[in-house]
Design a protein around this nucleic acid. Structure first.
Lengths: 186, 186
DNA sequence: CTATTTAGTATCGAGTCAATACCAAATAGG
DNA sequence: CCTATTTGGTATTGACTCGATACTAAATAG
């Protein structure tokens, strides 16, 4: 079966990536999951930076995620901001230090090297394949798709730089439309 | 940068796979890493089933791997067999129960669904892309390539079903040549 | 024949993660 | 309008991960 072979390669890939992440963050005292959360928070939009959104994104329990966020907050990498409308929800914003850390460790050196060793066509193929599989896997998991705001069915392009979210009926700045949204649907 | 986008997709993919693995093994009380080791041991050849080989494969420390193996042994999924020539090394063989467990959980249901949702060409692309990236990443990590014996430069095809390893000067059964070898080199 | 290397184990501490239990705010329904 | 349920989030506990360190025994080098 070729599928089993692909699965094995994917598992191994996942394992190597996780290891590279771990070693990279060792001096900062961060764990792979913590980095994942930080990274997610750095590329998601204002509807998607709540503890519950992170929970859905990671596919873990909210209790687990709550702990991870607590650690990141204690390290001064993120800040909790209360929601103005719903007093239950809070938004997790990256601090300056959080942004610095992300910039410092991305892209992963070895992954970067590996990617540059592929030619242009291989890179394009890889990128496309991974995105396709990711979409299929998220769907199979019953997860939200967590795609870019710009590519969402709720996104309405008024004219020029003016965009609107059909779900929240709020207007979007153009730079917000490239962020990841938990309400994303194709 | 498109590379950053690819890295993010890969990270997320790794994360989702790990979660599926975890949930799948929850009732068996196994952790993702433990499954990874078990899976590796089920597809590696007789030169590559030692604790040190697993250590190189996972890219962790030997102490960490030693613990993982101890757990698997205590659960009756693998057995330690002493090497006949080198009294320091031991070989970890899967028990019947170990094989049963592997068969029970592979392939991962959601990954399987996701893969079948891709068409033939997408699947082929994915498989190829992942293998290419894996090779590049292993190289960038300074890791051994852990490829199939059959595709190794040391593998000598005598005639018909007769193969020889040019490194160990031992003859190989034909079914052994499809296993993964730690000494693999292209 | 000693010195170094290699294979492997044991122990410790910080951290992951699910499960459970809990609280407060928002929403639903008569 | 007022209670019941749902939703967002925190706290605690226990089994497990993982690197660091320290250790033993066997093999190899010089």
């Amino acid at each position: 079966m070729d599928k089993l072979f692909t699965q094995h390669a994917l598992e191994r890939l996942a394992s190597l990536l996780r290891n590279e992440c771990r070693q990279l963050l060792l001096e900062d005292g961060l764990q792979p999951v913590q980095f994942e959360v930080l990274h997610y928070l750095s590329i998601c939009n204002r509807y998607s930076d709540t503890p519950m959104a992170v929970t859905e994104y990671l596919g873990q329990t909210k209790g687990t995620v709550s702990q991870t966020l607590k650690v990141l907050e204690k390290k001064g990498l993120i800040e909790k901001v209360a929601d103005t409308k719903d007093k239950r929800v809070s938004h997790m914003k990256l601090t300056i230090n959080g942004r610095h850390l992300i910039e410092k460790v991305t892209p992963f050196p070895n992954l970067e090297i590996a990617l540059t060793q592929l030619d242009q066509k291989q890179q394009a193929n890889l990128s496309q394949s991974v995105v396709e599989l990711l979409a299929a896997l998220q769907f199979a998991n019953g997860f939200r798709s967590f795609g870019q705001c710009r590519q969402c069915r709720h996104n309405i392009h008024l004219k020029g730089d003016q965009f609107l979210c059909g779900l929240t009926h709020e207007s979007l700045r153009i730079d917000e439309t490239t962020l990841i949204c938990r309400e994303h649907e194709l």
